[in-house]
Amino acid sequence: MRRMPPERAADYYPIAYPALMLGLFFVVPFAIMLAISFFQRVQGGFYEPAFTFANYGRFLSVFFGEVLVFSLVLAALVSAVCLLLGVPFTYFLTKLSRKAQVFWLVALLGVLSLSEVIIGFAWSTLLSRTAGLSNLLVAIGFMDRPDAWTPGFGAVLTGLVYQAFPYTVLVLYPSFSRLDPSLMEASRTLGASPLKAFFTVVLPVLRKTLIATFIIVFIFALGAYLLPQILGRPQHWTLSVLITDQAVYQSNMPFAAAMAVFLVVASLSLVLVVAALNRKGAGQ
């Protein structure tokens, strides 16, 4: 069948409804948020129309700078750990039987779909003094008495890696499962050890995928809004937490909106980098 351009008005009907829904409930909200970011806050948690850059001006504070740097470093760290674990994992996964792959995929999807609330709650329990891992270590004699490992930076990092790991694997999975097995065979025939073949053949072939995955997981980690709150202290709060906090608890919508716009711009520029990478990859 040949695809044809729409000709009559009726041909456009099918796309009209999705376009309308997405326009009204995604583009318009976005535009309103953008407008609010220039509004002025008034007493009592409300805001009034204005055109001020004051909300953006607040970015220049030391406090905001620290939160921003912390968010970026944390997201980069999460993404790096996820790739370090996820790359060998995905590679092994795609070598398993179809049945075993399905089992793992269901488990990964199960964890991925878990609410941040549930993940935060589960890890805070797991790292707590009364119910945590440290009890286990005491029982086998590694520690003298149970200790609380949450809240703390380690807990935030662990929780975020837990949440982002399945995502990382699912992003890597298509490329790894489509990897031509003959590449590996060829390098093995030429005398490379499996480990050497993995580092000198598989990873270079997938270099672009790896960079793209790093960025995609980075954005995913940047979006975490609950885990730093549940598992960390206020100094572990990220930009996403700050946005939620300003919008809901401080009732400062204009400032929250300005930060959200900033986050969109940052994320979008990263997405564009990924898209450019993919285009280059496709051109080869």
Partner: peptide, 23 residues
């Protein structure tokens, strides 16, 4: 339209949330 459909999932969720709240 397709990109608009994909965007909410790629962007950090707090953005969609705040957009919805504003709207």
């Amino acid at each position: 339209v397709e990109v608009l459909g994909l965007a909410p999932f790629i962007l950090p969720p707090v953005i969609t949330a705040l957009g919805a709240l504003s709207f």
